[in-house]
């Protein structure tokens, strides 16, 4: 997706400002020079993984709340009324910038009668080796059973 346009002049306020748009199609051979990946580069060089995780989590929660509201054909104002909150508070929740407490999340879940977050179940791994009986009774106990190559992992539901 790109923006194309022509050079033009326009008067805004006290300034005459003209706008020229990069003709990206005409400069395909210079693509590497034109694209400025400073956002990713800055985050790789200076970024704190904790901040990025927080941003992702906050957005995910707000997006989930918005999705639940939409599925129930509710507006932000309806949630505000339901919870006895100001609409500005709900707007802040939906902006994705709010860091929720567990208490607030649970209160929203109760109001909407829907889960926003889930806690993953514990995995229990049980490793086992299958032995099969071979040979005669004259074999020593440790030679009676042939160790199978089957090593399984059991995961509880």
């Amino acid at each position: 997706m790109m923006i194309t346009g022509i050079f033009f002049m326009t008067k805004i306020l006290k300034y005459t400002i003209s706008m020229k748009v990069s003709r990206r199609k005409a400069n395909q051979e210079k693509k590497g020079l034109l694209e400025v990946n400073m956002i990713d580069q800055w985050l790789e060089q200076h970024g704190d993984p904790t901040i990025e995780r927080l941003v992702k989590k906050n957005l995910a929660i707000s997006d989930k709340i918005a999705a639940i509201l939409e599925s129930k054909e509710m507006k932000a104002s309806d949630l505000a009324t339901l919870m006895g909150k100001q609409k500005s508070e709900i707007s802040k929740w939906l902006s994705g910038q709010h860091t929720f407490t567990t208490k607030t999340i649970v209160a929203i879940e109760a109001a909407l009668d829907a889960d926003i977050i889930f806690v993953e179940p514990l995995r229990q791994n049980v490793y086992f080796t299958v032995h099969s009986r071979i040979g005669s009774s004259s074999l020593a106990p440790d030679e009676v059973f042939e160790e199978s190559v089957s090593v399984g992992e059991y995961v509880s539901a």
Binding site: K14, Y15, T16
Partner: peptide, 13 residues
């Protein structure tokens, strides 16, 4: 006073 601006492509996600 005359100014002009050029649009610069930054990043496509």
């Amino acid at each position: 006073m005359s100014n002009f601006v050029s649009i610069k492509f930054i990043k496509e996600y």
